[in-house]
Write a protein that binds this DNA or RNA. Structure first.
Lengths: 102, 102
DNA sequence: GGCCATTGCGCAATAC
DNA sequence: TGTATTGCGCAATGGC
């Protein structure tokens, strides 16, 4: 069995309704705000992501350049090639150790 | 001037209300679903981000190791140190070019 | 027991 | 003219 709480036209009823209406508005505003924040977060993360991807690309490139230099040098040593300081001829290295790309 | 559309108790009115109620439900379900998707997207992006950060850390480390090797070698050349193949003495390089940490 | 918060639901206005 | 979206109020329920 229920207690109708209060008559529909009672002062107390109206006050309760009024307060609840406010609470509802407040709650829904928060909810909406949260949704927007989440969307915003997605955008931020996407940007951050692109930034990181770019950095990785850059680092990978640098790394592959250095590795190639190393390989070339190693081959020179193996072939006992010692270009004197100042030498500039592009060493005809017949190497072909595939450029690591991972 | 407005056309009251239909009497509150007309059949047509009820049908319109009914259909609108359905539309409302549908719309709100979509909206809720979208919110959940967005939240999910945030989680995915966060994971992706961590993955990328880790990769950057790794690449950076590799890069700094290679760079250090290069610098050491460059100094050996400058000091005219040519450890013959098989030589093992750790060259007493007085170098100190700070390890690039960008 | 009381109070605010959250949620499902229907109504009406209005955007599309 | 019909559906979609949105603000709003009501009532039930959750949670402290």
């Amino acid at each position: 069995m229920k207690k109708p709480h209060a008559e529909k036209d009672s002062d107390e009823y109206r006050q309760r309704r009024e307060r609840n209406n406010l609470a509802v508005k407040k709650s829904r505003m928060r909810s909406k705000q949260k949704a927007m924040d989440t969307q915003q977060r997605v955008n931020e993360l996407k940007e951050e992501n692109e930034r990181l991807e770019a950095k990785i690309k850059l680092l990978s490139k640098e790394l592959s350049v250095l590795k190639d230099l190393f390989l070339e040098h190693a081959h020179n040593l193996a072939d006992n090639v010692h270009p004197p300081a100042g030498g500039d001829g592009p060493s005809p290295a017949p190497n072909n150790t595939s450029t690591n790309g991972q």
